[in-house]
Each structure stands twice: as C-alpha cells, then as structure tokens.
Design a protein around this nucleic acid. Structure first.
Lengths: 203, 203
DNA sequence: GGCATTACGCAACAGCCGTAGCGGAAAGAC
DNA sequence: GTCTTTCCGCTACGGCTGTTGCGTAATGCC
C-alpha cells in the first residue's frame, strides 16, 4: 500500500510523539469542546501547520487519539457462551468507562458518553472517518461473531440463530444506554442483558 | 413553572417563526458543520444577539430544531406484540431516515447517522441538553414499555420478562447500526430483530 | 555535489462562535 | 405619565479552525 520509502524530508518522529502525548493529555482533561488544536501545537512545541499536515481537521486528530487509546479486547470461546459473552461485554464497558472525561466526576455508574459520542459525530460528519470507524468495528466484532458461531456449532445455541442480530442486541443495548438514554451500565445490567438475549438463543 | 406573563418587552413571535424556518432549512441542506449561526441570523433577517438570547450555543439551537421535527409515534397494544413492536420500530426507522441530510444521497438503505449523531454529541457536551434528551426518550419509551407490560399481562410474553432490557435490545440494535457500524436498517432487518428478541420472551 | 521533493516553523488571514456595550423600543407596575 | 424590565438591532471584539505563502531544513535520486 504505502510506499515504505517516501521521497522528501521524513516526518519528525519526535514531533509525532510529542503531539500524541500533548493531544491525549489535553483531550482527556478538557473534553472535545475546550480541546484546541492551537493549544496542542503550543504544548507539543510544534507549529500548527505541522499538525494540519498530519490530520486535515480537529475531528481527525481527536478520532486518532481516541483510536490509539483503544486496546484489544480478548475474545475467546472457552465452552460457555454465557460466561464468554459476559466477560467480553464487561470488557467493553470498562473500555468505554476509561474513555470518560477527567473533568466529569460521573456519579458512580453513570454512563458518560463523553468521547464516544464525539467519535460517532465525527464519523457522521466525515465520510473517511466513518469508513475507518466502521472498519474498526467490523474487525473487532468479527471475533465475537466467530465466538457465537462456535457456540452454535458446539450445540450451545439454536441452529438458526443469527449471530449478527444477536450481537446487535448485546452491543446495541450498551451503546444505546451510553449514548441516548444515559442510564447506568454495570455488571448487574450486563448480566440481565445476557440472560435476556440468550434465553431465546439457547438450544 | 414559567410565569405566563413576563415582565419586559415580549419576544417577537415573528422573529421566532423566521428563525425556526431559516434554521431548519439551513440545517437540512448544509449539515451540522457548515450550518452557521451567522447565516441563520442573516437569512431570518435578525441580529445574531437575538439568536443567542434564545439559545446559549449553536448546539442548543440545533437540538431545538431537530426536536421540533420529531413527531409523535403512535404506540398501541392491539393484541399482537410482534406486529405492534414491528410497526413501532419501523416508524422509528422512518423518523430517523427523515432526519437524513439533504446533501448525502445515502446509497439505498444506508444508515446515515446525520443529525442523530450530532444530537448525541451535543447531549454529551452540555449537561442540560443531555437531561432534556434523556427526558424526551424516557417519555417516548414509557409508552412502549407499557405496551410490553400489557402484552406480558395478556399472556403473550413470559412472566419474568424485563421490559426495559427487552426494549434496550430492540432500540439499541437500531441505534447501534445507525451510529456505530453504519449497516443498513430496512424492514427485513427489523423483522429479523423482532423475531430474535421475541423468541426468548414469548410465553 | 546538484535537484526535486517533502517537512518544518513562522506569520497572516477569512470565517465562525460567543460575548459585551450601546441606544432605542415595547411591555407591565405604580 | 413615569419607571423598570426585557427585547431588539448594531458594532466591536477575542478565541478557535483551517488555509496560504514564504524561507529553510532534510531526505532520495542522478
């Protein structure tokens, strides 16, 4: 894809590192609105044009920062769909929780959409971000879809279960509560959700 | 709540009407980014300060415009949960579809988050918008929760079904596809979704 | 070494958001 | 009628986003 060796002067990796550090720090402590590209440039000791040479808009920068703080969630079928899905969903919730903004104390259990909502909005605003976000979720979800298929093949789930729909029910409920209704998401809710979803799918 | 009679000079209702018209038109044809408060003021023939006297930020104005284009979705239990829920969810999808931006052709069936994502982001940015949005959804969803309860009491659903969780699965899947994965949402998908959800809940 | 290419820092700019101050207009309160 | 309160239009402003132009630095290619 990308030519390994590019023609002119190479990008300063030191600048990359300083920008990433400054942007991450400022984004978490300020939130999207008060997060300013100018300030990132100053804090990183870099000209603003250097930032815009890497990301065409503030949205692209923010999404890149958020994407970088996403770590892999282990997905593995260990022979118990209920336990495996519960573990996975709880990991997702933890990941979302870690993306809460520093400023907002977020009364315990409160679902603070924070940066997730900004990423969704950025995806809606810019087609290229939308494609990238979708691709990321397709890749992540593929593992869970395989897990569901394995559980079905192992006889834990009905033959005619639709993995995609089943997963939409699980993940959708979480994101719906996070982004729309703002209701709390705890381990108790995850348990209730998995119970409700699996009741119709269990063999 | 609000004092019916206020003290000083009353707000110009003519200005209200012109602002609403101009804002709605410009928002739909431009999208959130290119939608400019200055331009609304010019198009409405009104000073910018008149706008900011009504809405403290651009986000508040946008959310107000979007809220005004939401019409009531009829919810009624007619004795067939599957049909009733399917009808309701399809109405939701239609409503979301109507909020698509004029500019984006949205390849048939494509879920274009458009303004929905912006409202979610605005809710995450401003606590007062968040509260208002949540209250709106609580009110809307209350009708569907009652529908589910009636169906349960009528013996169509299990005794121990949890209406809130069940509804999260349904609505969540739709918004998840719309906002996150961007996968298409059609009547066929709604059918598959309702089938999957009701299978575990049916008595 | 010389050339094309790309990155860097710096400065200036247009457009937008949101605020502040002003004179004047339209209502209620007395 | 007078006073107070609130709205209106106007102007100006600070801060942010994103762009442009310029001189300079670093790399590959010949």
């Amino acid at each position: 894809m990308e030519p390994a060796v590019r023609r002119g002067r190479p990008r300063s990796e030191a600048a990359d590192a300083r920008i990433n550090g400054a942007a991450l720090e400022l984004l978490l402590e300020r939130g999207y609105d008060a997060f300013s590209v100018d300030e990132v440039a100053v804090k990183a000791g870099v000209a603003k044009t250097t930032l815009y040479r890497r990301w065409p808009t503030k949205d692209h920068l923010v999404v890149a920062v958020v994407a970088r703080m996403q770590d892999e969630v282990p997905v593995e079928y260990r022979g118990d769909v209920r336990a495996d899905l519960t573990r996975y969903l709880n990991a997702i919730v933890d990941g979302l929780d870690r993306m809460r903004l520093a400023g907002r104390p977020a009364a315990s259990g409160d679902a603070s959409a924070g940066l997730v909502a900004e990423v969704a909005a950025a995806a809606a605003r810019h087609a290229d971000i939308g494609s990238a976000v979708q691709a990321m979720f397709v890749r992540r979800n593929a593992l869970v879809l395989r897990l569901i298929e394995e559980a079905r093949d192992a006889g834990e789930l009905c033959e005619d279960v639709e993995p995609e729909v089943l997963f939409d029910q699980l993940a959708g409920a979480l994101y719906y509560r996070l982004l729309i209704t703002g209701r709390p998401i705890g381990t108790a809710y995850v348990d209730r959700l998995v119970t409700s979803v699996l009741r119709g799918a269990a063999a």
